[in-house]
Amino acid sequence: MYIFSKIENNKNGDIMEKKLYQKLVMEHRPDEKRGQNAVIAFLIGGTVGVIGELLIEFYSYYLELSRADASIFMIITLIFLASLCTALGFFDKWVKFAKCGLIIPITGFAHSMTSAAIEYKKEGFVTGLGANMFKLAGTVILYGVVSAYIFGFIRLIVMGGA
């Protein structure tokens, strides 16, 4: 519909108004699909959370790490697995199925970076891969740092550090 709204000469009258088209789309969109998506996202996201907890327990038990170190190991493991699965080509299908169940966990961060890196490699290593790798992950880092700086300032003033 974005393409349609850009066309100016509508001689045949087959280009709809944007609002009318939106109304038609909303009427024909199946409602039960949304509930199904939410349930799938809940189940997959929860499973990833349990895997994270299991990995923390595993690392802190077998490698005798503290819980803080084990959680860093867990995050690295999940990032590694997500990057590998993206590179092998089947993570895209999983994301298409689970949507936010895999985008909201840290796996989505790794997925966006690896898929951008592989996608833009053919345009060159500096102008392609280097310039486009952070296209999606960059917003996360940018808004994370800005908000953490502002809220950190507030926390320092209100609570005096700690």
Binding site: I72, S83, F109, A116, A117, E119
Partner: peptide, 20 residues
């Protein structure tokens, strides 16, 4: 650790794999 490993793994895997 998370950002570094994400960058490193992405780069290494992009060297060996093609887009599907």
């Amino acid at each position: 650790s998370g950002i570094t490993s994400a960058i490193f793994f992405s780069f290494i895997f992009s060297l060996f794999f093609r887009p599907k």
